[in-house]
Design a protein around this nucleic acid. Structure first.
Length: 365
DNA sequence: CTCTGCCTTAC
DNA sequence: CCAGGTAGGCAGAG
């Protein structure tokens, strides 16, 4: 089989936010622990961001309303507010450890990274397994954090392997094992296939990756459109491959907040919108970037998203952007006369670096 | 090309 | 009844 000559490692930190809290507060260990995003509407409004395995045993998972988690969990459960910037710091420390295993690394998110080990291990899966074990034990020794690692011929396969090995797992899928490994997976094991896509495929009787392999490209294109069809077609065969490159610069920055109560009164919303803009501009300046577009995000009482955006001059002063945002939100309300707003936010697009500090790295293969 | 909405990723 | 915050990619309409 062609295209299976690389060695890619996918690193995934287990139940990351909740695990960080466990590690830093040993008294919590062994108890159900839930990291929450409180929305501030009342004492317990908001959603679960991360839950440890003790909490998951009771059916608690990310995205669930906190109130439901509280109904499911026994009295000794621990509820903590999310500390995003702290997890980001811990994440950076872990990523710095991982980076030493290969310079060809991409940080996928706060708790995931993918490394191309091909050169580092000379294409050997035996050596790659040794690397993976060492990485896991180094992260455990230095940060007390458990993680799951997948090693396979490309990023997609390595991620599926890591997912399949959770928690505290290690799964190696060698080139000759790819076909068997893939066919037994459900379609939603493929990254990029979530709830909606899984349901659409199920309507065609497609449940497993083996089923998916039998669907013709033309049919996939009708279901998904061109780009995604191509991805799905290749991923289902273990053949979707792309070089591991460092993340580029941010393309957008946003800040959304939940309103105290549902409303369509501009006076209620202005202060929140202003706070969102301040935060978003602060992030922008931290990144040393300018924005050429600004938009409002409105989330209705029915949890439907409505957005509106417009072009601005880079470096447009705060007051002027604020005026623009108010107009945009006013238009949203005028065009949707029956909606009540639940959350509002600000998004800055068209980002460009201010100085000549192009931190883009590429590898000449 | 611009604009908007949808989907995904789960933490 | 309950539903946070974030970034990126893409499709489709105009």
């Amino acid at each position: 089989m062609r295209g299976l000559d690389r060695v890619v490692l996918f690193l995934d930190l287990d139940y990351f936010f909740a695990q960080v809290e466990e590690v830093e507060n040993p008294a919590y260990r062994g108890r159900p622990l839930v990291v929450c995003v409180y929305s501030g509407r009342d004492q317990s409004s908001g959603v679960v961001s991360s839950a440890n395995y003790e909490a998951r045993k009771y059916g608690v998972k990310a995205g669930m309303p906190i109130k439901r988690a509280m109904a499911l969990l026994p009295g000794e459960a621990v509820y903590l507010p999310v500390r995003l910037s702290h997890y980001a710091k811990v994440s950076e420390e872990v990523m710095a450890i991982a980076k030493r295993y290969s310079a060809k690394m991409r940080v996928e998110s706060v708790d995931e990274a993918v490394l191309d080990l091909t050169d580092a291990v000379g294409g050997s899966y035996e050596r790659a397994e040794e690397y993976a074990r060492r990485l896991k034990s180094e992260i455990l020794a230095r940060k007390s954090l458990k993680c799951s690692v997948g090693v396979a011929p490309n990023r997609v396969l390595a991620k599926i392997a890591a997912d399949a090995s959770k928690p505290d797992g290690l799964k190696i899928v060698k080139p000759h094992e790819v076909a068997d490994f893939l066919t037994t997976q459900p379609v939603n094991a493929l990254p990029g296939i979530g709830l909606k896509t899984r349901q659409r495929l199920e309507a065609y009787g497609v449940k497993t990756v083996a089923d998916l392999q039998k669907v013709e490209v033309g049919v996939l294109e009708r279901i998904f459109g061109e780009k995604k069809a191509r991805y799905v077609y290749l991923a289902a065969r273990g053949e979707f491959d792309e070089p591991i490159q460092e993340r580029g610069l941010a393309k957008q920055v946003s800040k959304i907040l939940t309103l105290k109560r549902n409303t369509r009164d501009m006076a209620d919303v202005e202060a929140v919108l202003a706070a969102c803009l301040s935060e978003a501009l602060l992030k922008l300046s931290t990144l040393n970037m300018t924005a050429s577009r600004v938009g409002v995000i409105a989330i209705t009482s029915e949890i439907k998203t409505i957005t509106k955006q417009v072009e601005i001059r880079p470096q447009t002063p705060y007051d002027e952007i604020m005026k623009t945002l108010k107009k945009l939100l006013h238009d949203v309300l005028a065009e949707n006369p029956s909606v009540m707003l639940r959350r509002v936010g600000v998004r800055l697009f068209g980002l460009n670096p201010i100085a000549g500090q192009s931190k883009l790295t590429a590898w000449s293969d």
